[in-house]
Design a protein around this nucleic acid. Structure first.
Lengths: 195, 195
DNA sequence: GTCTATAGAAAGATAGAC
DNA sequence: GTCTATCTTTCTATAGAC
């Protein structure tokens, strides 16, 4: 199993993605050069091309990986019995998951326009699938009369925008703990849903 | 008053800003070159530097102009008598103003990180001033007992995030008119505020 | 006020040595 | 698997002609 020294493919790939994510989130995709990413990892620029065919693919891998993780994590969340409990679960899940991955979330919202049409469509479909999870909850609650919503599609988009907004201001160690933020947002979402 | 032909300073400046805004919004600040902007206006790149000292200043002028317009437009809006009416006025104003200037709004949220510290602080202060307008409404309603909010600061941020989210999906001629969107969001905001 | 021309730096990506 | 070196293109910004 011994490898030649200087051979690190299993560790270098993830490190490249990690540094690229950090730099893209901080400065923006177009503002970050391959040389900067390589320097952050401790490589020369040319070596990056052993791990990605080009810069856009590096971005796409990050966005795709994030969306896959998001959907997998939600799928792994136990399904509560009532629509109201499922909505509460979604609110808490979304805030928690997004705060844990602030950089990836930021990228997924900001750098979509740097993807080509095919890659863009792939990410959009995953985002839509996630939105559909919330919309299904709202529809079921609407159907059984426990929610009062003027429009389930708009409520879906409004709730997700509101929850994702937490990432723009939340700072660890600030005035409010994560748990308190969850409580406050759940209160507002519950009321907005007419529950 | 006759000018030499080829002399267009009064019209060229605004056209540069208009094209820059369009291109920055579409492709991102860092991804757009001065040559592209010049070509869109019908100039050579060097001519742009008669109107802006550098690329960042061009971006800053757009963001600053947008925030000034936003605050001026809100200040010009008649102040309703009750907190509930003022909140409704804010919701409708925000949706309307932002939909009318989708590109500028997009820029103001996406390209802040391309500003230097001083310019960044200027824009942030203006954004804060706008948030304070909504927070004052929420506080007054909370004080007189017509709103029931767990936290006025978070409610401010949540409502603005929710309303600004309209810009990401609204398309003229789609399923819903602007007026209907305003109604639906006002319904959700009113309920979320416990009013 | 705008153009042409260009300086000087930096970008993405590839070739070949080790 | 990584590095050095480089090709080619493009960038921001400036100088000087008109």
């Amino acid at each position: 199993m011994a490898r030649k020294s200087g051979s690190h493919s299993e560790i270098t790939g993830p490190r490249i993605r990690a540094e690229a994510q950090r730099l893209f989130a901080r400065h923006g995709f177009a503002a970050v050069s391959m040389r900067q990413i390589a320097a952050a990892v401790g490589l020369q620029a040319g070596a990056l091309y052993l791990y990605t065919p080009d810069k856009e693919s590096l971005l796409f891998d990050l966005l795709k990986g994030h969306m896959d993780d998001l959907l997998a994590a939600w799928a792994a969340t136990p399904r509560a019995a009532s629509p109201l409990s499922r909505l509460e679960g979604f609110v808490r899940f979304h805030i928690r998951f997004n705060l844990d991955r602030a950089e990836a979330v930021f990228l997924s919202y900001m750098e979509l326009r740097n993807l080509g049409p095919a890659n863009f469509a792939t990410i959009e479909a995953l985002r839509r699938a996630y939105e559909d999870e919330l919309e299904a909850i709202l529809r079921s609650g609407q159907a059984e009369g426990s929610f009062m919503l003027p429009d389930t599609k708009l409520a879906t988009l409004a709730i997700i925008a509101m929850l994702t907004g937490v990432n723009t201001w939340f700072r660890e160690g600030g005035r409010l703990s994560r748990a308190t933020v969850e409580e406050i947002y759940w209160d507002m979402v519950r009321k907005a849903a007419g529950a």
